[in-house]
Amino acid sequence: MTLELFLFFTLALIALVTAGGMVFSKSAVYAALNLVTNFLSVAILYLLLDAPFIALAQVTVYAGAIMVLFLFVIMLLGVETLRAEFDWKKIWLQAVLALALLVEGFVMLFQRMGQAANLPFNTASVLTNPSEMAKVLFTDYLLPFELTSILLLVAMIGAIVLTKQVKKRSL
């Protein structure tokens, strides 16, 4: 138990430091790398929670695919250095929304502290076993799942439409 607690605090510290580093980093590449480290430490936190499927999905999708794409775009466009413009007037709306989200998170945290998560499935078996997870995902949560896939499809079609060229290119 103490080992687990020690691991948790170490990982939480890494996650917080890298999240801060991502926000305050002047170089876009370092910001992206901080975010990658953050994703990895969160993935290990999932592992500590006995949820290996979510942990590895997190690594594959976020750290592996999305952040590589981010890094690719940063390097391709040559926008490695960010100009340090920090104007409160421009970002007050975002700041208020972020503050609201933070307060909401804390309220939820303190309200639910110590209570067991009230979920309509057996958390232990679903999180450790991918086929159990698939069953829950494709029966109880089918509608959110399909909506997410439609959202992704819309994004994909949008990207294709935006990049479509007038001149036809073949293989």
Partner: peptide
Amino acid sequence: NIGVLYITAIAS
């Protein structure tokens, strides 16, 4: 039990 996913994660 998710060894295949582990391989894709490390490969990515």
